[in-house]
Design a protein around this nucleic acid. Structure first.
Lengths: 219, 219
DNA sequence: GAAACTTGGTACGGGATCGTACTATCCAAA
DNA sequence: TTTGGATAGTACGATCCCGTACCAAGTTTC
């Protein structure tokens, strides 16, 4: 985004704390604020009819929440909340709408990120349909590390199982597999990424394509 | 879309035949035309690293191809081709860009459909992660019927297996299950939907949410 | 109408994942 | 220091789905 465009957006931004599990969007409720994380990341979670959600999107400092507003509506059927605590900026949905109307190029920047998000979602659909747990896990860990500083992720097996939509023991077993392969180092409530290249290889094609598309657009 | 807006779009539209398997978008290639099907439907297919694709989106008369252009870029990593022959209209990507620039409200209409498409993709991710074959099959049949006239779908088990990313015999077995339940009537190369409500129920929550969102926006 | 091809039905063993339950370990609060 | 809760490891049978193979039945081609 150009300096001039950022100048239009910046006055509306408020710096905010984004603690763990803070809800940034509620399902089917009007979106009040859109958030631009600068650290940590949020999960977009689709609710199944039986209340068992599954993650369909991951948003960190590369992106923003509130794409529904960018697309011209005010809500989605999904829930979005912080999965890894951090900080960021937010602006009201109304101000976002006004700035986008004011500047085509600002709007264009947000739309381009929207495109990147769609691609991420479609590849999540592919991974969920085609990949084994350890492959999806490797993909998720890589996507998460892309969005944090350093190589340490603070999360439990239970949380990962909710994100991937699988059993908790399934995550435990898969993590042990990754650890024995020397790709990660697990401890209670935390995972350290040791070998990114190895994880990418193990993901067996599940990781990479959306990231390549993002880099083509913004890199 | 208002009559005035349609007046801006209409001059650029050319009526075209959309035969089975016609490719509307090639992966990672610049999009020349965007298509508005009036009958039949197209599949958006993500390519796995091993070349085994899986469907991540379904587009019929309710929508359009070329969302990447709407979002401000010229290509996607996906492939889009007609899955059920029909007819439609197309316009060049350049004309689409110009019309959207000319009219905020035209752009807004297309963006709103883009939102609906994102929701469809995210629920596909959920279905792929959580639902059994027969549930996903019921969802797919309902989505397909939403996009054709009448209750007859012309497609083979083989094709369905490619769309769902499962084995062909898996589709055969699941279809027989649906038929024994009196929900469909299968014959060589064709499926007749007999009981929509029953299919929705059998889909176990996999069908419905994206359609509800679409209706909220356009219904 | 015979041959070649497409499509659909069925079967087999194997692997992935499930739901569940139980135990072990770590950490924090009392 | 003890106790209780959160987290992780392991095991069990059941179920779903896989890859593959083979055959049957319909359809097209010659």
């Amino acid at each position: 985004m150009s300096a001039a465009d950022f100048g239009l957006v910046q006055p509306h931004l408020t710096h905010v704390d984004l603690p763990l599990r803070k809800r940034l969007e509620a399902r089917k409720k009007p979106i009040d604020y859109v958030y631009f994380p600068e650290s940590g990341f949020a999960s977009v979670v689709a609710d199944g009819h039986d209340g068992r959600g599954i993650e369909v999107g991951l948003i960190g400092r590369e992106g923003m929440t509130g794409l529904a507003v960018v697309m011209g509506t005010d809500r989605t059927p999904h829930e979005t909340y912080m999965q890894n605590a951090g900080t960021g900026w937010r602006m009201t949905a109304g101000n976002l709408r006004r700035v986008m109307e004011q500047s085509r190029t600002v709007q264009q920047s947000f739309l381009l990120y929207g495109h990147a998000f769609v691609i991420q979602a479609t590849y999540t659909a592919m991974a969920n349909g085609r990949s084994k747990i350890e492959e999806r896990l490797a993909r998720w860990l890589l996507m998460a590390q892309d969005r944090v500083e350093g190589d340490r992720l603070t999360l439990t097996h239970e949380f990962l199982s909710l994100m991937l939509g699988v059993r908790r023991p399934g995550v435990t077993v898969a993590l042990n597999l990754l650890e024995r392969a020397g790709l990660i180092q697990a401890s209670r409530g935390a995972i350290v990424i040791v070998d990114r290249a190895g994880l990418e290889q193990l993901s067996n094609g599940a990781y990479g394509a959306p990231e390549a598309e993002f880099n083509r657009l913004f890199g």
